[in-house]
Simulated scan of single mutants.
Amino acid sequence: MKFQIPLTPGSVTQLLLRVVACLVVLSFLSQMTMYFLPDYPSRDYLAKAFNIDYERNIPTFYSFLALLFSSLLLGVIAYAKNLDSGRYKHRWKILSFIFLYLSLDEIGQLHEKLIDPMRNLLNATGFLYFTWIVPMGFLVAIFLVSYSKFLLHLPVSTRNLFVAATALYIGGAIGLEMLGGYIVYTIGPGNLSYVIITTIEESLEMLGIVVFIHALISYIKTYLGGVSWNIYIPGKNTQVTEHQNTGLPALSEPANTNLLR
């Protein structure tokens, strides 16, 4: 028996938005219990398990999976472009590796290892208190400049979604991180202002990835024939239990007057 599960932009986006909404609400409510409710069994454990600003917990694992999924989708596009000798095939490959690194960074918090050395080097205070944003901001600027032609090459709908996803993710990861650093430097981390800022920050990052995934699946569906998974329930003579069908019958993009060649 065979089941096909198509990955459509609408269904995937709705699922991810529900997951993000649940994680944000649970995180915020668990943090509020620390300030406004008396102690109860497992209060501290639940607060740490659902805090979207903490490491190695449920929200972190979700973000790791979302970034890894983005990397896989980018890999599918890169594979199709490579078969078709697409003009920007290497840019898609690089994007796939970047998101693979971001997923590993999310689960391992690699960027936070830069904070203390950079803080001592720059004697950072105020908005630059979380000093990892300095080298990362520099790398982001280089990336945006180097990918400007690639961005203009994309269909208008994909381009707009990429821009929106970037604005949400960078706005949270760097913009609100600076504000959070200022609050920690001036007041300290144990206050409601910091909880609110970090909740908004992490929410923007997760929403940015949802928008990006929506853009990638929409691009695959429109220009590469779609992507789906075929699941088989094995019978007596069946050897294969599951395989992925990337469904890429049309590797070349159709003529599009909105593309800049």
Rank of each mutant, 00 (worst) to 15 (best):
Q31G: 10
M32S: 05
T33C: 15
T33M: 11
Y35E: 14
L37H: 10
D39E: 09
S42E: 10
S42V: 15
R43V: 15
R43C: 03
R43I: 15
D44C: 06
Y45R: 13
Y45T: 15
Y45F: 14
K48D: 05
A49F: 13
A49H: 14
F50P: 02
F50D: 07
F50W: 13
N51V: 14
N51T: 13
D53R: 09
Y54R: 15
Y54W: 08
E55S: 10
E55W: 03
E55Y: 11
N57W: 03
N57C: 02
I58S: 01
I58D: 00
I58A: 03
I58P: 00
T60D: 11
F61W: 12
F61G: 07
S63N: 09
L65N: 04
L65K: 04
A66N: 00
F69M: 05
S70W: 02
L72Q: 06
L73Y: 01
L74H: 04
L74Q: 05
G75W: 04
G75Q: 09
V76Y: 13
I77Q: 01
A78S: 12
A78P: 05
K81N: 14
K81I: 07
D84A: 13
R87K: 14
Y88T: 06
K89D: 05
R91T: 13
R91D: 04
W92P: 05
K93S: 12
K93Y: 09
I94S: 10
I94Q: 07
L95C: 13
L95T: 06
S96A: 14
S96K: 07
F97W: 11
F97R: 10
I98Q: 09
L100F: 04
Y101Q: 10
L102S: 07
S103D: 01
S103H: 01
S103A: 15
S103M: 04
I107H: 01
G108M: 13
G108A: 13
Q109C: 13
Q109I: 14
H111S: 08
E112P: 00
E112Y: 00
E112F: 00
K113Q: 08
K113S: 10
P117Y: 01
P117D: 01
N120Q: 08
N120S: 12
N120R: 09
L121D: 02
L122I: 01
L122T: 00
A124E: 02
A124Q: 05
T125S: 07
G126E: 06
G126V: 11
L128R: 04
F130V: 06
F130N: 10
T131Y: 00
W132R: 03
W132G: 01
W132I: 03
I133C: 05
I133L: 06
P135K: 06
M136E: 07
G137M: 09
G137K: 05
